[in-house]
Design a protein around this nucleic acid. Structure first.
Length: 484
RNA sequence: GGGGCUAUGUGCUAACCUGGUAUGCUACCGCGUUCGGGACGCGGUGGUCUGGGUUCAAAUCCCGGUAGCCCCA
């Protein structure tokens, strides 16, 4: 495709979505997109990886209804206020107006917690750790963007209950660990977790911790967030248990929401290059494509037979492979499968068929870098090259991310760093709404920068540091970036 | 939240200003030749986003709707 991802990310992004057939944007409801097979295959693999990690850590799957009665939805005050502007409502069924309208879930707290109240009686029922993989709907008023911000998106939401605060805080840490284990170690997406400012929390939460990654245009994108809900929802939804002293106590809750469709968008944006997609080996719909090269003077049948032999060998080993025996020329196929981000290509012509070898090309190698490998060790080499490719992608993404972390002590420095597309650490007055929000508004108005919060585990600055904006004593190191 | 731009076959596009048979490439279908980095010849299918208005006549002019993109906050 040959568009410079760094210089013109928006054009790159739109072009790759249509030319690699990731989504079709022509569906005629604003903010709703059709996800096409190539993206869905990867997203299913990503779901499976995430679900496995959740289950390893004690979560069980469930499926709750998509519709929530308005009366349920309105039980927790802050939550209602935060989400109501974003709700799609069902008001009719058939020709009848419903007595009570139904919210299409923007998130499932208010669907799940009334059931939790019935399920939880005592300490024996805790902790309760449940997730569901589903889609949710939010009437976004900001500009929508496929994968990054749609009005319908696909996610996992985990909703956990504990006997006490320590249990809930432990879960928040575990959610961060899971994010590291899946998002970074498997998908190769670097991020930082920030505790969001008080004015930017999940509606109804005590604290919100969210992972921000960085896109090639220098804007951050929020990936999974985990919320310490405290006992706010438990009290509202009557989720109480009898503790070991015989008292009736509200449970402590957390929720965690990795949006797979958005994470997929981040994954291909981080790893892609000017020729197209570059996918980590484990999440590529197709891991190896075999391209037969049928020369005029060669025996085409023998070459195709050899291709089938290679295919069966790889498939039996559990490798996702296919032979591209379409009538296109080899050069066309190379370009096509590079655009699609297939990690490894095997070229098979007369030479390979005779000598029982394969010509192997790795997606992220410089163009025309090819290696000859013996058929006998094909499986071993494919697996090794696949995992090396994924490791290189992760390392490269991590280097890029770290190179775009910056520090500023003055507003001028902050401006310069934001213009370079950095996430910028600054001394900052306060994360409380009535003390610190005015500075955030000022930074937003001046440089379009957003105060993302404080790093979860970072020590606060020395007393002599002054807020970058107002000059009062700085209580925090805050991180500022332009956001999606 | 504010502003701008756009909509013609699968995609890209010409015709729009100055109303009159809708252009080319690509893709797709058929036949043949090709195949070690985006092949070629011949034939073929298929189109003016949507609703109204003006007009003898609308892709073209006017008004509304829908959808997409970009910029600013």
């Amino acid at each position: 495709m040959d568009i410079d991802k760094q210089k013109n990310f928006s054009e790159w992004f739109n072009t790759i979505i249509s030319s690699a057939e990731l989504a079709d944007l022509r569906y005629n409801v604003k903010g709703f997109v059709v996800f096409r097979p190539w993206s869905v295959k990867s997203m299913k693999l990503m779901y499976t990886a995430y679900e496995a990690e959740l289950e390893r850590r004690g979560h069980s799957p469930a499926l709750f209804p998509a519709l929530i009665p308005e009366s349920n939805f309105k039980i927790e005050g802050e939550h209602v206020e935060g989400f109501t502007p974003q709700v799609f409502w069902v008001e009719m069924a058939g020709g009848n107006k419903l007595e009570e309208r139904l919210a299409m879930r923007p998130t499932s707290e208010t669907a799940m917690y009334q059931m939790y109240a019935l399920w939880i009686q005592g300490t024996a029922d805790l902790p309760l750790k449940i997730y569901q993989s589903c889609q949710v709907w939010r009437y976004e008023t900001k500009a929508t963007k496929p994968f990054f911000r749609s009005r319908e998106f696909h996610w996992i939401e985990a909703h956990d209950c504990f006997a006490d605060e320590a249990g809930a805080r432990g879960q928040v840490r575990e959610d961060m660990e899971m994010t590291q284990a899946v998002l970074f170690e498997q998908f190769g997406i670097p991020f930082l977790f920030f505790q969001r400012p008080e004015w930017d929390k999940f509606p109804g939460a005590v604290h919100t911790y969210a992972a921000d990654t960085l896109m090639p245009d220098g804007r951050v994108l929020q990936l999974p967030s985990t919320h310490l809900l405290g006992t706010n929802f438990a009290k509202a939804f009557n989720v109480y248990y009898q503790n070991d002293k015989g008292e009736r106590a509200p449970v402590w809750q957390t929720c965690y929401g990795p949006a797979i469709s958005r994470i997929y968008g981040a994954m291909f944006s981080v790893h892609g290059d000017n020729r197209g997609l570059v996918l980590p080996y484990d999440f590529a719909p197709l891991q190896v494509v075999i391209v037969p090269i049928l020369g005029k003077d060669k025996d085409g049948t023998a070459i195709l037979q050899y291709c089938q032999e290679v295919l069966e060998m790889l498939t039996r080993a559990g490798i996702r492979a296919k032979v591209d025996d379409s009538p296109n020329t080899p050069g066309f196929k190379y370009n096509h499968w590079e655009l699609q981000g297939v990690p490894l290509r095997v070229e098979v012509g007369g030479r390979e068929a005779e000598q029982k070898t394969l010509t192997l090309v790795v997606r992220d190698a410089p163009p025309k870098t090819k290696a000859t490998v013996p058929l006998a060790s094909a499986i071993e080499i494919v697996r090794k090259e696949g995992s090396l490719l994924s490791a290189r992608l992760t390392a490269k993404a991590d280097d890029y991310f770290k190179a775009h972390l910056s520090h500023a002590a003055t507003m001028d420095e902050l401006k310069a760093a934001l213009e370079k597309g950095c996430i910028v650490r600054v001394p900052y007055c306060s994360m409380e709404k009535n003390e610190g929000k005015a500075c955030a508004d000022e930074i937003k108005a001046k440089f379009a920068g957003d105060v993302r919060g404080i790093k979860y585990d970072e020590k606060p600055p020395h007393a002599k540091e002054k807020c970058v904006q107002c000059g009062r004593d700085a209580k925090h190191w805050a991180y500022v970036a332009r956001q999606y």
